[in-house]
Amino acid sequence: MFKDVVGKKSEKIKNIIERGLVKRFAEAIGDPHPIYIDEQAGKASRFGGNIAPPTIPRTFDYGVVEGLNLPKKGLIHGEQTYHYNRPLLVGEEVYCYMELKDYYEKTGKNGLMSFLVVKRYGEDKEGNVIFTEGSTIIINEAVREGMKV
């Protein structure tokens, strides 16, 4: 049902790695390490400032891919990957967008399952990729029926 959306990308959105968000996020994953939240520790580190936990990009705004309208409930998160060229720095601007990389269907013991492979990108101002994020989302038959597609 999302076949014709494959390959479509969203417009880039500017995100700022806010100090308050990083602190709340680090605390929420039980990892309030000084490298994330203590300014002095950040300055003294090899990165010259605080960095952000590797799974934080999940909270960023990646814009909207036209035609990729997912239900709010019933999605199953199958896989998640990150690739970093360097850690994210607290305070920096990151330009984010997403793309539907693939869509396929499989019939398993729970009926027809749909798989969406979404790739997200974070770039610096010059367009250098800082990180990429991959997510595989599974939609089962009951949810598909609810979507009337």
């Binding site: 390490h33 580190s45 799974t55 199953i76 199958g78 990957t81 690739h83 850690p87």
Partner: peptide
């Protein structure tokens, strides 16, 4: 983190 960083992180739920 003083020695490096997580370059790749892959998870299956």
């Amino acid at each position: 983190y003083e020695e490096g960083f997580i370059q790749d992180y892959q998870i299956r739920f």
